[in-house]
Design a protein around this nucleic acid. Structure first.
Lengths: 263, 263
DNA sequence: CGGGAGGTTGAAATCACTCAATTAGAGTGG
DNA sequence: CCACTCTAATTGAGTGATTTCAACCTCCCG
């Protein structure tokens, strides 16, 4: 375990310590929800009273595992996470990457058994929220339920897009598409601009996400670098040829359903 | 268009005609929802008053298309449907197959723009339900909202499983896994037994679902037939070697989240 | 008995994989 | 600051799975 859990009840404590506090995490959640729909004061107040446990995590730590029956959801405050499944014979499929503001295991609210695992992809801070509290919140405020439901629907849309990436795009297009997707998602929450961002993924991670081998990912990256479209070094990606990259993979961000931008 | 639309208000008409009536469709919906959780009489009554339009469709007809902004959802009463997307250059990716009881475009309730299309895969009967009515229903009955939400979450779980099929399984395993999945889903709603079912899919459809060419699907089927594990002819599949097939692809139905079986 | 969609097969080409070795970088302890 | 170590990145060579192309067959339906 990477650090001590810190349990708070919201709005009874002020963040006098370093690092993300529960207040910070609730702000994150409210900002996230308001990026979709307006919240009433009553709704915000109810969210503010959610019991939250904040915990720092190291890279590569599982947050929930396949077969678990979790009793809480995790809100990612800092760092990246991914969802994945291990097949026999050491193969791995990564289903999604998650960035601050995401609730990667929101589905566990209604699907009792985990059919995959969630893992940190970098150092991270997560806020755990008990199912019980979330279920009560969504039962009381259908508007909040609708926003969270919508969030899982967007997840599904991204899964579909990845399916076409894996199934019907060339390796070059698949990598390009992933880079475009991640940029648009990060940019939307203010974590990237100027077509550059921190990318805490190894080539093996990229391969496991796109159904390719790490070796082949390496060659694809070499080609993209050779064309001068990307710079990737030390976990930082710069897209120097956005237009070309987006055109190569026919990138259309409709499926991300970013109707409004986060504040 | 394949036939006339028939508009009813539920429980005000009795099905004196041939074919599925709105009552039939509401029964289907209630049965579907009750396969997940018990419904109160009040909830059943509210569902019974949903306005529904029943329509027969031919095979290969689009129900909704990418870029559409639908104002209704469709409940599949008879026949199969699939969700898909066309890429440039004539490539197609199929995201899911749907069977009676499914609401393939339920996501449109909260995602305004379609990022893919839905198409009948055989002759089919569908019931259209206005978004307006569903939104009111879910706002009034959080329990019903939760069941429908859950349904879309299972969709997502199947998408993930398909991702691993396309990305990390061999062609043989991928086909085997799909056949197992479809059997379990059909069996759960009483549409299959004895490891056999009607499969209204061409080899090209299977290929587009699994990210393979129709030619290769053909060869894989030949191999599965050669092993004596399946019989596939005239749109009917018999799995003669269920154990072997399931073992080949390491089939684990957890991801289908069939906690209870439909009546 | 024709027409058409779907199924089947062979041959050649291609994309991506595996294996194996080498290099680069980051972190650690002396 | 350097040697050591571990992980990740890189490269080459050989292999294998799957695609593409093209032809032919089969079955169903009107």
């Amino acid at each position: 375990m990477a650090g001590r859990a810190v349990r708070f009840h919201l709005q009874t404590q002020r963040g006098s310590r370093d690092g993300p506090t529960p207040n910070h995490s609730i702000d994150m959640l409210i900002r996230k929800l308001e990026s979709i729909a307006r919240l009433s004061d009553e709704e915000k107040n109810a969210i503010g009273h959610l019991p939250v446990t904040v915990r720092p995590l190291n890279a590569g730590q599982d947050i929930v595992r396949e077969k678990d029956r979790p009793s809480q959801c995790c809100l990612l405050l800092e760092g990246w996470a991914c969802r994945y499944q291990i097949l026999g014979k050491g193969k791995r499929q990564i289903f999604s990457f998650h960035i601050p503001g995401d609730i990667p295991d929101l589905q566990s609210l209604h699907l009792k058994v985990m059919d995959h695992s969630v893992c940190t992809q970098s150092q991270a801070t997560v806020a755990f929220i008990p199912h019980e509290a979330l279920l009560e919140l969504t039962a009381t405020f259908p508007g909040i339920a609708a926003i969270l439901w919508r969030d899982t629907l967007v997840d599904g849309a991204v899964f579909r897009e990845w399916m076409t990436g894996i199934g019907r795009r060339t390796a070059l297009q698949a990598v390009a598409h992933l880079f475009c997707e991640l940029y648009v998602k990060l940019e939307a929450v203010g974590l990237a601009r100027d077509h550059a961002y921190r990318l805490p993924l190894t080539q093996a991670d990229l391969g496991d996400a796109l159904g390719l081998s790490n070796v082949h990912i390496n060659r694809v990256l070499k080609e993209l670098r050779g064309k001068g479209w990307i710079t990737l070094h030390g976990g930082r990606l710069e897209i120097n040829g956005w237009r070309e990259l987006a055109h190569l993979c026919d990138f259309d961000p409709t499926y991300l359903h970013l109707e409004r931008r986060a504040a």
